[in-house]
Write a protein that binds this DNA or RNA. Structure first.
Lengths: 334, 334
DNA sequence: CTGAAAGCGCTAACAC
DNA sequence: GTGTTAGCGCTTTCAG
């Protein structure tokens, strides 16, 4: 069953005593084929272990059943969960997801998108709204459904599924202000490339400004977001600013690191110090101290995006681009 | 730049004033083409925004530059990291990863593999050694490099990259016995489908037997492995068996849940009770109490697997199947 | 070094 | 209902 010398449709057709076309139709359930021929063909295919060749059918049919997915990182559960949602969403549709990782690099992102396009995918799901100019042009001209996910702050190329990071940051700030917190610290990382974390920070920061406040200290590390990094940075800023009463982290991993520091250092969380992450990862609810977070529906976003691709692949007429906005739920952890 | 009416090689060739063939060779850097023609073609391609059609080239060239990856779950960082490693490993090779999720379901796995095969991928990377009989036959007859990853306990179809879960379980048991622990509990989940967790448990259990011991209690939950589940199960078994001095968990997530329970319950870890996970996820080193774990090189395994596929795609002669065994490092967390 | 012919395996479009 | 004829866009031959 090599790429070469593997069973082809023609062979199945011969075995079933029909033409290639009838075999093709029988196998796909397309057009009208007599009951008896359908059975004969299917039986022959099964007996011979026929596998079919998506390459050929896609090329011939002018559309492939590949769906391209572009994410910044695979090592981050958040995007893995989006992929999981996409896998859910296309289940049973016959679509296959191809993925590309950009490492938060706009050049790489361009290349990845270009590469995906060369497979004539049925659709593309891309993380975020902030691509390079060239990449965006690629998407605009692709003439296939493009769904940008995980962000709503900006202008999508086509469809869009996600939530506003800016609003999420602001909402969290307001919730914390309402709890009476006044001395805020910020711990983040890699903002140079993570546009969404940057938007959250801006939203949060602006809300503070509106309340006549600002961050007492902000500490942004290079490199990836890790629990370890969160722990270290927290130790540093708490050491330097013992009067902080709230820390906003760019995500839950960092915040968990903060929680671990506080537990070890004997700081009372959330009484003295509220720790605030982002995403609502699974482990958050089980931490020994409660931290605040914004619950984001990663899996649902993946599912919705996949469904949009499926729908527009079916429907021939161009509907207005879908726009599905989720509302992250604030969980103060109390 | 639709699937239809998008620039084709023929058009680029015309624009460059050469034949399709010369254009093809120039673009791929294959065969000998004059310097001037190379430049002309490349320039034309760039100007026209030529993207190429992998479907056509793969079909024609009898080999695609797709690489299939089959994982049990995307929601588990472990497999996401394997994917990340694969993405690393194929970087710059022009290969594109297609993934399929099996949800630990053998039927689904069969379907996913079948589906992948229909893309004539350059190779297949499959999680684990324990496929269904039919799936295994599919792999054996595929005549492409097949790399099974994350397990070495069993007979691979072809190449194999991973480590022995059985040995890892046994090694951990011995290390814990050497620390003087005698009353062991086990907390796991979903063993019905997670062959690798089962192998670890067996290895651990046999080592206990050799020492004349056995688990005081084992508690296996249905469903997925979560921090929350680990916390609850730990609470239960510690409540029922206050004299336990060590708990073996099927992975770090559950163990972290156990750690959180102990912190909240005021149990001294690791003095009174050693908690032992598996994988060495990033957060483990930052927990407020130290837990033991086995460090597994997920990313490296993905990279190695990708490289094997790349190598056998290049080399025409069939080398003996690669077999790369890693040795999980025990980290007692002290 | 370059090009023309002949497919890769399948399906759309049209016959019958 | 079924078969025939043409390709899909590229690369592999093989001839210059």
């Amino acid at each position: 069953m090599d790429v070469k010398n593997r069973i082809t449709l023609a062979e199945v057709a011969v075995a079933a005593g029909v033409s290639k076309m009838t075999a093709s139709r029988a196998l796909r359930g397309a057009g009208d084929v007599s009951r008896s021929n359908i059975d004969k063909v299917r039986q022959a295919a099964r007996d011979m272990g026929y596998v079919g060749n998506h390459l050929a059918s896609s090329l011939s049919g002018q559309r492939s059943s590949l769906i391209g997915v572009v994410v910044p990182s695979m090592a981050n559960v958040v995007f893995a969960e989006v992929l999981a949602g996409i896998a859910d969403g296309i289940e049973g549709s016959g679509l296959q997801p191809v993925f590309g990782v950009t490492d938060y690099d706009l050049e790489k992102e361009y290349e990845v998108i270009r590469n995906m396009l060369s497979w004539s995918p049925a659709g593309l799901i891309v993380t975020g709204l902030d691509q390079s100019h060239d990449a965006r042009r690629l998407l605009e001209n692709a003439n296939i459904p493009v769904v940008q996910v995980m962000d709503m702050d900006g202008v999508p190329v086509d469809a869009c599924v996600g939530f506003s990071h800016h609003a999420a940051g602001a909402a969290m700030a307001e919730a914390l202000l309402a709890l009476g917190r006044r001395k805020f610290g910020y711990v983040g990382c890699g903002l140079y490339a993570d546009f969404r974390a940057k938007k959250r920070l801006e939203g949060f920061s602006e809300a503070l400004t509106r309340a006549g406040l600002s961050f007492v200290i902000t500490r942004i590390s290079e490199g990836f977001s890790t629990v370890k990094g969160g722990r270290e940075l927290t130790s540093q800023i708490v050491g330097a600013n013992p009067d902080l009463d709230c820390i906003y982290y760019s995500n839950d991993d960092l915040a968990a690191g903060g929680a671990f520091h506080c537990i070890s250092a004997g700081l009372s969380v959330p009484d003295e110090l509220i720790l605030t992450g982002f995403n609502g990862l699974e482990f958050v609810k089980s931490l020994p101290v409660s931290i605040a977070t914004s619950l984001t529906p990663r899996r649902e976003i993946g599912q919705a995006a996949a469904r949009i691709v499926l729908d527009s692949a079916r429907g021939d007429q161009a509907e207005p681009p879908a726009r599905i906005e989720f509302q992250p739920k604030i969980d103060l952890g109390v």
